[in-house]
């Protein structure tokens, strides 16, 4: 285990060290102490290493992650795992706004609650939130799965494309062009796998699926007057 204490080391030195790890590095376990809400911790990783941040992080932790696993033992600030490509990010506490935004792949697990705009414009990432999510989540979500074990805030899935949204609790309101969908066996299979991987004991049958009503995909001449 390699330990870097941000009380002694600069953030730039830390990120440079982590970024320098190669595909075949034998230093696969890293621990970061005293994050104290600093920005952009463990950003741009590109190696199969596991980084554990002991404490809470500020903006953009684990952004653009590829292959790495990043664990945050506290809460995460805005834009955690933004544009993640692959790998896994696990937050023990809560996540602030736009968690997992524009993510292309990998798995983001939030054990507490996520704030507004969770999974905004997601493009293939899987997100599992053990608690609740805030308003405008999955706005313009293109693909991937957003799984919410608690409740969702206002305007869920507004203008979404083909992302699958699963909510166990209540949805305060659905966004434009987002509708409830049928749960088919393939969805139960996806949920079963994601919940297991995210360490949740919620039962897949308790979830409702939401997705695009696909009415915004093509121009509707009846709306011409609105432009």
């Amino acid at each position: 285990m390699q330990t870097i204490d941000l009380a002694d080391s600069t953030l730039r030195a830390l990120n440079k060290t982590l970024y320098a790890q190669s595909e075949t590095t034998n230093q696969t376990q890293w621990e970061i102490l005293n994050p104290k809400g600093a920005h952009a911790i463990a950003c741009g990783l590109d190696a199969p290493i596991e980084v554990t941040v002991r404490g809470s992080t500020g903006y953009y932790c684990a952004g653009m992650n590829q292959k790495a696993t990043v664990n945050i033992t506290g809460s995460a600030g805005p834009g955690v795992a933004e544009n993640m490509m692959s790998g896994k990010v696990v937050i023990d506490g809560d996540a602030s706004q736009y968690a997992g935004a524009t993510g292309h792949g990998g798995l983001l697990v939030i054990k507490g609650n996520a704030s507004s705009r969770c999974g905004i414009s997601m493009k293939g990432i899987d997100i599992v939130v053990h608690g609740n999510i805030g308003h405008m989540s999955a706005f313009m979500a293109q693909s991937g799965n957003l799984v919410v074990c608690g409740d969702a805030g206002d305007a869920l899935g507004d203008s979404c494309y083909e992302a699958r949204l699963f909510v166990r609790g209540k949805v305060k309101s659905l966004g434009t062009d987002c509708e409830q969908k049928e749960m088919r066996p393939e969805h139960i299979a996806i949920l079963t796998e994601l919940l297991a991987e995210a360490g949740s004991d919620a039962r897949p049958e308790e979830f409702t699926r939401y997705g695009s009503a696909r009415t915004l995909y093509n121009f509707d001449v009846d709306n011409a007057g609105a432009y």
């Binding site: 104290k36 809400g37 600093a38 809470s56 500020g58 903006y59 809460s75 600030g77």
Partner: peptide, 8 residues
Amino acid sequence: GSEYRALV
């Protein structure tokens, strides 16, 4: 705080 950083 605007950010958690301010509270640490």
